[in-house]
Design a protein around this nucleic acid. Structure first.
Length: 856
DNA sequence: TTTGGCTGCCC
DNA sequence: ATTCTGC
DNA sequence: GCAGAATGGGCAGCCAAA
């Protein structure tokens, strides 16, 4: 697995293979599993095999093949070897199994490296809500590679175009330099100690934290240092890691599956090991059939935990607490009786200790597209009740409100790392603490305290960088009422991708006090674990709440919804209430938490009822989303039309009995937009379909290497007989179509090495720098959701707007219009009309209207 | 001081 | 965002 | 039907070059 290839060419090919290749149509022995989603969770056919293979895997043997550094660090090469193996595999079950077994080895050999490894696998540097990002893109990497190898940036770029993978470019550059015995990876580096996972992750974190003057060059220096120390194929993985995409068919969901299974297996292994000491007889889990339910449960647990507590540091600390306690006990010579089993944590406790709390964003429910009203009706049988709801075109906003001790703001790194230990020492039932009676605290034994310390140390060593910027959930303050303290209600706002947007919405933050019941002066006593129904919900006082909503740019004068673009014009950093120029109306559509009670497992029907009960609508500022319940085709169709008339995108369809548990199915809602509808008939407003001409192209990357990955499209201006750029397009192509387009259009390439467009009849903004230019020959039918005034594109410039052209939003390829010549493409005038014809765009100035008429 | 490239993050 | 693809 | 990986327009913020 870790065979070091000596030849540089072999190294290059090695990573090259990690790009998924098209599967040969050759006979496969394994039949495709129709129900593969389930087998991912360990329920299908392949799952038994998976379990059996996990049992058969000799963790200890593989652990011995890895040599830790003298400091006890895990070599980076151990990870890259696994990534390499995964990259050569396309079966998801196998990918997950490889990673699972690697995690098991890490847990066995070097548990404190798990967090580093996890972060490197998911290509993150901190939890999403911590607001720490690498700040490295392709351009920076190209500069870094050029400076490391002494090559020109243009040469790196053209190699990138050719091989479609910057990681591969790094490897090639390295090997060519190696033969010259210079810069990177020369003889000198052979003496250096190997890179460790900790080295790489720490470097990533420090790159992310770099800011201010010369920060770019400092980042590049860091990258160069890593690349110089890299051996074999490591440079490729470093580069891919910095790109933020490993591109080996392994992303967050698979990593979570592997984490769950690995922890499950490790606990089983550990129980076997310790049973010899304690004399206990562990449950036999040595057959696939017996093991499988445990794997399924572990999978489910980790998925749920991560969706409610998206913080790997906290999860790992919690999972490892008993393990580390055991090791501490074992390493201490086992003179005292074992108490590590009392340490809370591991699979048994992780759900409880890492559960949903205000202050940490939950993964939001998402929706998937449907083709029309009929599809919705056929999808739901007659018993399934559902609601239709406007789909507002704004920004997803998850609003958290919770009580916090005054002045306790954010906890610092030490508290963050220690959080699991603190949580562990707290009573299991929140209720007993909140009730204010004598809280039976499990007074932590010596070993438990030691374990807590060990867990903290592990994080401090390996994960401090990540933890430091993490904001802890502060709602736990409510569990320990402090009579001397005063409390304030804190508001946090998170985006669809769990980014902290609080500072962007001072207006929404202030709004909270207007639509919510007043805050209690101290934490509520005796809050229930759950509500039997909405009537039990206290709407007199609101201590805490989490609301799911869409914030939409709103004109309070005309009381109309403004286009998405207006919302994006708002300032984003350090926004003061007075700075707000573009007003917002918050359309709330769900409630996930109220006064200490999680509502995720309540059906939508009840959540909606509670939401309506506790939130007071403030017209044009805070409203509940428009909802309609009916299963009549005409009703739904009318509601869809009405929604479009109200400047929204369409409808979201939600079943009334479903819960809010994104770990189970994050795409449980359906969306219905006009432009999804496959009409067949005329274009008549059912989404915008236009016929445009490809006039330039870009080389594809990754799985599109070797074909053009994106094209520049233009509309036709009959007056000037020129083509005006309207959008780029990069989706809607099957692989076959990508091939044929490349083949056909390569013939029409215009040789050109100058700047700007090669022909006067190609009107394209300076910002766009296509790889190649094309003579206008084809017409493509393209679908879009919307049109917008563009800073980059030129379509209908001087017609739709004096200075700006029109561009398409969400463009996708439909088909070639064989029947049309380029000069029969959609015209600039038509594009202008379509732009101004949109509901959300009001033409206020009648004079402009007249001018348009005169021009025609 | 202004401009423009790059990046991340909304959709 | 949308779309395609392998499993 | 999931998960992953291709790709879109366009905004503010940041930093470096002009």
């Amino acid at each position: 697995m870790m065979k070091a290839s000596s030849g540089s060419a072999a190294e290059a090919t090695s990573t090259g293979k990690a790009i998924k290749e098209k599967k040969q149509p050759a006979a496969t022995t394994e039949k495709p599993d129709a129900n593969n989603a389930d087998s991912m969770f360990g329920v299908g056919d392949g799952a038994l095999t998976m379990a059996a293979e996990l049992i058969a895997y000799d963790v200890d043997k593989h652990a011995q093949e890895i040599t830790l550094t003298p400091e006890g660090r895990l070599p980076y090469s151990a990870l890259t070897a696994t990534l390499e193996t995964i990259g050569n595999e396309s079966k998801r079950l196998l990918i997950v199994r490889y990673l699972t077994n690697f995690f098991r080895v890490v847990l066995h050999k070097c548990p404190h490296a798990l967090l580093d490894v996890l972060y490197l696998c998911v290509n993150k540097v901190a939890p999403d809500y911590a607001g720490l990002e690498l700040g490295i893109g392709d351009a920076t990497l190209i500069t870094a590679l050029a400076s490391t190898t002494g090559k020109k940036e243009s040469s790196i770029k053209s190699q990138y175009d050719e091989v479609g993978d910057l990681g591969l470019v790094a490897l090639k550059a390295k090997s060519s330099q190696k033969s010259l015995g210079s810069f990177f990876g020369g003889a000198a580096s052979a003496k250096k100690p190997p890179l460790t996972c900790h080295d790489i992750f720490s470097a990533f974190v420090s790159i992310a934290k770099e800011e201010g003057g010369n920060s770019k060059s400092r980042r590049i220096d860091s990258i160069r240092k890593m690349l110089v120390r890299a051996q074999n194929d490591e440079a490729g993985w470093i580069v891919r890691g910095l790109q933020g995409k490993l591109r080996i068919g392994l992303a967050e969901n698979s990593v979570l599956a592997a984490l769950g299974q690995a922890c499950c297996m490790h606990e089983i292994d550990m129980r076997c090991e310790t049973s010899k000491i304690t004399g206990e007889k562990p449950e036999k889990l040595d057959t696939a059939k017996v093991l499988m339910p445990h794997l399924v449960a572990a999978n489910e647990a980790i998925r749920t935990v991560y969706s409610e507590c998206p913080n790997y540091g906290k999860i790992v600390d919690t999972m490892l607490a008993p393990v580390l306690a055991y090791r501490a006990w074992r390493d201490a010579g086992a003179s005292e009786p074992p108490t590590w089993q009392e340490v809370p944590g591991g699979m048994a406790d992780v759900r409880r200790l890492c559960s949903f709390e205000p202050g940490v964003p939950v993964h939001p429910m998402l929706s998937k597209p449907t083709k029309g009203v009929q599809e919705i009706l056929t999808r739901f049988n007659a018993e399934t009740e559902f609601q239709c709801e406007y789909k507002y075109d704004g920004e997803r906003t998850q609003i958290h409100v919770f009580l916090q001790k005054r002045g306790s703001h954010k906890r610092k790194s030490d508290a963050s790392a220690a959080a699991p230990a603190v949580a562990a020492a707290a009573p299991a039932s929140k209720k007993s603490a909140a009730a204010g009676f004598f809280a039976p605290r499990a007074s932590p034994s010596k070993a438990a305290a030691a374990a807590a310390a060990a867990a903290t140390t592990a994080t401090a060593e390996t994960g401090a960088a990540a933890s430091e910027t993490e904001t802890e959930a502060c709602a736990s303050a409510a569990a320990e009422p402090d009579t001397s303290a005063t409390y304030e209600r804190v508001v946090k706002i998170y985006s669809r991708n769990s980014e902290d947007m609080t500072t962007r919405y001072p207006d929404v933050t202030v709004l909270v006090d207007q639509f919510l019941p007043p805050a209690p002066s101290a934490p509520l006593q005796g809050t229930p674990d759950s509500y039997a129904d909405a009537s039990e919900v206290d709407d007199a006082v609101c201590e805490s709440i989490v609301i799911d909503a869409e914030s939409v740019a709103f004109d309070r004068e005309t009381k109309t919804i403004l286009p998405f673009q207006n919302l994006m014009n708002r300032k984003k950093k350090d926004v003061k209430l007075e700075d707000v120029k573009v007003n917002v109306c918050v359309f709330a559509f769900d409630i996930l938490y109220y006064n200490g009670v999680p509502l995720l497992k309540k059906p939508l029907r009840e959540r909606r009822e509670i939401l309506a009960k506790v939130c007071k609508e403030i017209p044009n500022m805070f409203q509940l989303s428009s909802v309609m319940v009916s299963r009549e085709f005409d009703d739904i169709n009318n509601f869809l039309n009405e929604s479009v008339g109200a400047s929204t995108e369409g409808l979201i369809i939600k079943t009334l009995d479903d819960t809010y548990e994104p770990s189970r199915r994050s795409l449980n809602w359906l969306k219905l937009k006009k432009d999804y509808i496959e009409d067949g008939g005329g274009e008549g407003g059912l989404g915008d379909s236009v016929d445009l001409v490809p006039i330039a192209a870009w080389h594809g990357k990754g799985k599109r290497t070797g074909v053009y990955g994106a094209y520049l499209l233009a509309c036709y201006n009959p007056e000037t007989e020129s083509y005006e750029s309207c959008c780029k397009i990069g989706t809607g192509f099957s692989e076959e179509v990508l091939e044929s387009h490349t083949k056909a259009l390569q013939e029409t390439e215009i040789q050109w090495s100058g700047t700007g467009a090669p022909r006067s009849y190609l009107l394209v903004g300076d910002m766009l720098k296509p790889d190649i230019w094309l003579e206008p020959t084809q017409v493509w039918e393209v679908k879009a959701a919307d049109l917008s005034l563009s800073p980059t594109h030129k379509a209908a410039i001087g017609v739709a707007d004096e200075h700006r052209g029109v561009a398409l939003r969400f463009p996708r390829f439909l088909r070639i219009r064989e029947d049309k010549k380029p000069d029969e493409a959609t015209t600039n005038a038509q594009i202008s009309e379509m732009y101004w014809g949109q509901e959300s765009v009001q033409k206020k100035d009648v004079v402009v209207d007249d001018e348009d008429d005169m021009m025609l």
